[in-house]
Amino acid sequence: MNAVRPRVTLGRILLYIFSYSFVLIWLIPMLWMVITAIKPDGSPVTVLTELIKPPFTMDNYQYVSENASIWRWTWNSVYIAVVTTALTLLLTSMAAFALSRIPFKGSKLVFWIIIAGLMVPTEATIIPLFLMMVDSGLVNSYSSIIFPSIAAPLGVLILKQFYDGIPKELVEAAEMDGASKLRIWWSIFLPLSRSSMAALGIFTFISSWNNFLWPFLAISDEKMMTLPIGIPLFQSGYAAELTIPMAANMLASLPALLVFILFQKHIIKGITMTGIK
């Protein structure tokens, strides 16, 4: 941080006014969602004075939770995101450890083949993936969403880069003491890479949580849908009135908001570290 405190000038005051009015405008769509979700059906939702005045109601929330499978979709989303994240962390860290610390024939080649996968967007493989899922009977299953996500190579790249930086002496000392490779990975590399793992984990979780295109194709059974797929389906029945759809939006966003509030610092650090959308 800078030791020099900025002086109070006209410029700074204008900057304050500009920044805070801008952030207010920025948040309007979200505030509007929060408020319309608790307004009774049919109340005027574009007049500010009407918006902030009672009556307020929880009826919309009740209606959504009774008439949409929203809790089921939330559970599906949570389950898929948690399993995807756990498996991604476990498998990519094992692979990264092998590539970084165990010399073997073809190590470089394997690494480059994995890294080449960074160039392949899911969008380009939806057709073969879908046909594979149909052939193996995995359509409409959790696995159909989880498996392709685990194949993403980003984790291998990030963790290998981190593992490459762990001093050789540490490993040699452990080997002297008779530790096996498995032990070295588990008791040295995993604990040391905690912050990289956190960044990768949060990144994986959010990507899975917001994944749209692939679950949209792979899931047609309403019971197996995730929130991003179920919400538009539910809302398609409400074109004119918006209090109920907004309550659905709110319910769909609550878990993500909670994660954001809890892990804000990690999320932002993770983006800086991975730099990948």
Partner: peptide, 21 residues
């Protein structure tokens, strides 16, 4: 050892990344 460590990831990678291409 290296291949044992790599196998689980490579299984998913070849199944859902290489093969679809």
């Amino acid at each position: 050892f290296a291949w044992l460590f790599l196998a689980p990831y490579l299984l998913f990678y070849s199944w859902f990344m290489l093969y679809p291409i």
